[in-house]
Structure formats: structure tokens, C-alpha cells
Design a protein around this nucleic acid. Sequence first.
DNA 1: GCCTTTTGATACGACACCGTTCCACTTTCG
DNA 2: CGAAAGTGGAACGGTGTCGTATCAAAAGGC
Lengths: 205, 205
Amino acid sequence: MQVTELVRPYRGVSAEDRRARRREQLLEACLDAVAASGVADTTAEAICGRAGLSKRYFYESFADREAVLVAALDRLFEAVRTAINTALAGTTGRAADRIERTVSALVAAISADPRAARLYVEAPRHRALEQRRALAFDEFTQLLVERVLDVDPHDARARTAALLVVAGTTEVLGRWLAGDVPLGEAEFVQTIAGIGLALTAVGSG
Amino acid sequence: MQVTELVRPYRGVSAEDRRARRREQLLEACLDAVAASGVADTTAEAICGRAGLSKRYFYESFADREAVLVAALDRLFEAVRTAINTALAGTTGRAADRIERTVSALVAAISADPRAARLYVEAPRHRALEQRRALAFDEFTQLLVERVLDVDPHDARARTAALLVVAGTTEVLGRWLAGDVPLGEAEFVQTIAGIGLALTAVGSG
DNA sequence: GCCTTTTGATACGACACCGTTCCACTTTCG
DNA sequence: CGAAAGTGGAACGGTGTCGTATCAAAAGGC
């Protein structure tokens, strides 16, 4: 129920704005918590504590702790999606060029917010997050096959190989972000792009 | 303390054998539980119930639920290790041949026990399991670089690319086992091996 | 047959997180 | 000022799991 029959501005902000601001605070606090303690320890209480809001407002914006994590992860995917689309926008070059642009945009987008990056890396810690990430893998695989490589989108081999590269990129990216890969960003991107380029030969193989 | 001062055979088996048998039952029950309900729901109680043993014997053999999961996962890695070493034992052929043998042995070893395969796929659900799997990735990456491909083991690019393939293989293998990849085993192995072969060209850039 | 080990099952206290509810306090508005 | 909406924090009951302790019955040794 909880019909908002009588609403009133508070401290000069409308009810709607206050609500939106709280939701935003919770999402930010969620990322902070993930960055500080990992997905597993990101409880509703931890998020509320960091946000400076009580649990009441948590459940105002999210059904449960899963919901806020999924929302934060989806926001990251949206950023990656946008970055890649922008990078591919005016490309007329060869596959090698498009691959490097794509990988570069991905790495930059994920690196932009290390907090979200940890969420991305640790997504498999939680079932719902893992499923979201699996969908994102599918989406990026689709993008790779259709818009970056010049291969038949219905070739199961090509799709499988592309998925392998997408998933493998996630793993090495996580390690690179953790500082475990002794490569600069350019070299790192080139290395991944090099594997991606090999995909163009797999479908017909 | 609990010094085994006075031990006695029971139902014709020595104390030591009974203990070992119980441990084995628990490990098997652990795999059953993982296969049935996933890693997250594989609790100490669930394992004991399936094993037909009380919690007392669970804590006789394992410190906590993490320990039994790690033990089960390590056992799987050992099987994979052995399978790959066997496959590579008498090879004198080219890299392409060694790669296909390796991938084939890996796929066969994991497919051999679908219960353990789910444990392998869902390992990131738990911190300790994830770490073990990360170590296994490193080990298999090392093996790939040193014994399968002919690349410089100190080349960071080559190592990174090999890690990408190892991790990516895990993901597609999980999907293949779930029936989500429309490829027969031979085709599937060849597809992965095809990507692996591309690694021979990455190191030199 | 009596005593001890072994076993299986249950009960227990502790803890953590969940999602809700309650309450005292602040701010708005008439 | 006083009534009503908004806020923050704490308390609560519920659930699930942990790891330990307890106890009666089954099985072996003498």
C-alpha cells in the first residue's frame, strides 16, 4: 500500500528528489562496500551504514540486497556498452583496428571505476550477479561476432570461440586491475586484441 | 586431545579404515550435494545427510565446510593434471597436435564426473574455492606455455594470452557441459584448440 | 553377562543477516 | 504553537548455519 497521499518538500527538496537521491546514495555506498569488503560481505546493513541511511530507506528503493547489487552491476554494463558503441561508431577500418578499439574501450570503461570493477570480477560470488554477467557475456559475444569480426553469426564454432575470448578477457582484466599482470595498458590491450584477431580464422577452420 | 588410546575394530574394520571410509563418504556426499543443489547450498548438514553420517564425523575429517569443498576440488584438479600429463607423455608432434591432445584430455577429465564439473564451474561462489581455481589456472597456464606451446615462458604477453585461453576455456566448458553449446565433443575440442594454436603467434607480437 | 567403545541422532548456544516495526526527534505547514 | 509528515536509529522476531555437547542404543572385548 503506502500510497503517497500527502507529500511535502523537506529541506527544500521534493519527495521524489529525496527518494531518488537516497537511491543514488545507496548505489554509491554499495560500490564502496564492495570495494572495501567484497561482494560477500556487502550486506544491507553495511550499505546502509556507509550511505548514512537507515534500513527503512534501503527497502524503500530495493527489494533486498541482491537488487542493489544487480542494479550496480547493470549500471556498469551500461557504461561498457556505451563505451564500446562510441568506440565503434565511426569505424571503417579493418577487423584488427575494430578489435583494438573495442578492447581498449572495454578496459578503459572498467578501469574508470575500480569499485565497480571489483563488483564485475566478483560477480560469480552471487547467483543473480553471475547470471547477469553471463547475459552480458552473451551480449558482448554477439557484439564481437556481428560488429567486430567478419564471421558468420550462426557459426557455432565462431560463437564459442568468441565467448571464450570474452570470458577469458574478464579473468585477465581482473588480474590486470589487481596489478598481477606486468603489462602497461597499451600492451595489455594489444595482447587481448591479438587473441581476438585470431578469431577471424576460427569459423571457417 | 582425543588421543586414540584404545581402538577396536568395528564390523570387521579397523578404526583407521573406518575413519578413511567415512572421509570418503563425506567427499562423495559433498559432490552429490554440489551436483544437486550447488555450492552455495552445500552445507555441512546437507553433506552429512547424504553421507548418512552425523556431524560428529564431519568434523572428525574436516575443519569446516570449506575444507571438504576444497578437498573435493583439489581431487578434481589432480585428475585433470594426471589426464593431461598422460596425454602429453609420449608426444613428439607439432604444437597443434599437443594442443589438441591437451584440450581433449581436459574435456574428458572434467566430463568424467559431472558432479565435480559443477564444483569446478561454481568454484567462484566461494572465496577459498575461487583462490584454488585461480592457482589451478596459473598452473595450467604454466603447463600450456612451457610444455604445449613453444613460447618464451618469461614473455608476459604470452603468459597473459595463455591465461586468457585457460580461463575462457573454463567458461565455455561449463556451458558445454550444461548443454548450451551446439557442438559435439570433437568439434568443441577442435574449436578450443584452434584458439590455443593462435597463442603461438602472440608472444613475438 | 558386564563394561567400554562406537555409533547415530538430537539438542544446544552462538552468531549473522534478514526484513519489519516501533519510537523519539525534526521539519513543514497552517 | 500544534498537528502531520519525514527522518534516523534501535529493537525485534525469524531463519539458517555453525560447531559442540549430550545420550541411548548397537557392537565388540573379556
